[in-house]
Design a protein around this nucleic acid. Sequence first.
DNA 1: AAAAAAT
Length: 500
Amino acid sequence: MLKTEDAERSAPHATETPTDPTPASLEFSSVGLDPVLQRAVADQGYTTMTPIQAKAIPHVLAGRDIMGAAQTGTGKTAAFSLPLLHKMLRHENASMSPARHPVRALVIAPTRELADQVAANIKGYAAHSKLRVAVVYGGIDMKPQTLELKQGVEVLVATPGRLLDHIEAKNCVLNQVEYVVLDEADRMLDIGFLPDLQRILSYLPKQRQTLLFSATFSPEIKRLAESYLQNPLLVEVARPNATATNVEQRFYSVATDDKRHAVLKLLKDRELSQAIVFVNSKLGCARLARSFERDGLRTNALHGDKSQDERLKALDAFKAGSVDVLVATDVAARGLDIADLPAVFNFDVPFNAEDYVHRIGRTGRAGASGLAVTLVTREDARLIGDIEKLIKKKIELEPLELDDAPPPRAYRERSRSEAPRSEAPAAPRAAERSAPRRPPGDPFFDRPYEPNPSAGEPSWEKAAPPVPVRGLSPNIKPKKRVAALFGAKLPEPQQETETN
DNA sequence: AAAAAAT
């Protein structure tokens, strides 16, 4: 969410929706939220809505099913949680017995950390109300969660696996859920999550309001999503898959063996106080983190093979500034809100272009500026082409001049206790002394993708027209549709039973 | 070529 002065900087590239009840102004006070919520919003210093909030809140209040697309870091969580909380406060469910405590709103997220964060935000908005907000996810003891659920919660935030555990253990009652939100909806609907998601949805009433939010929506996912929505409305304030304009995106062509060196050099040259370095595999993540540690950087690894305790600690330490470099897999790609993060590195080019958008969305949040560096090897040409097409921006590959010296050892000399964290890492002396013998490297390959307007390909400036959301075509079953979408086989039913 | 999410 943006504060007043920031709001104008990220003016909406509005895609008008015909039935759009645009609020009178961008002030939170103009949409008539319950005073209890307005107070909570004010507590956090917010007065002005972001574009996605201004556009989505009236429709959510009006009870519409929504597919919401807006760039990363523009306040999607508040866009759905404030109006839902408002409705829950206004409409006390008279039929519900006070002895039972049915969940009324369910929010599902793709990672534990994101579920945690979303729950924390919603708790903030609900702070002055009596609504109870809980979060459940795997990797930690189930008992405290069970206890909390049994005492009753109105808003439940969850990751899919643990939620199913609780459902099947009858720890929570979901047959009176009125509102469902899929955060990072395109991820929740992808092949890996879909079976769990479908099972969860099968426990919910058909009659409900469903909200889908993400910064990225492929046309295929949009179509699939329709089958879970009733008379849905597409709310978008930027072309889907758009990257934030306040993030400087650089692409350097480097040799695989030079990548580590390149990160160290750029950290120094750009005087970056902190950065997330994304890698594609858990093993690579652990190795790179260890290597940075040997170079004297304060480093943590964050990936799915770490214990939940370690994961949370790594994230907290990074947020607190006691760690400079967080090496992470795509577990950290989506949704995480790390205030004032100056830079994101793609040590590996992500396999999915969508993940590129989400990764770099960790910087430049709430209108701040950010730097996104992607290291590109010759094997990555196709992936870069995919990204170019997705974000509809021309990608200029640049050479990166590396010193011939070995990766800087001067980092080692920097003691952990000295050197305030705002200071840039110490200069690598060896690197400074030796003249660069390597000539400035040429990009390894030609431009991977040039738009061809005569072939109907979009030009960089012109955003693709918004895709209208139409009704579900009833003759295609969602499962089949997914199989068709991905050209892949769905998990065989036997595979599930085999695991016992 | 992978990661994530239950144990």
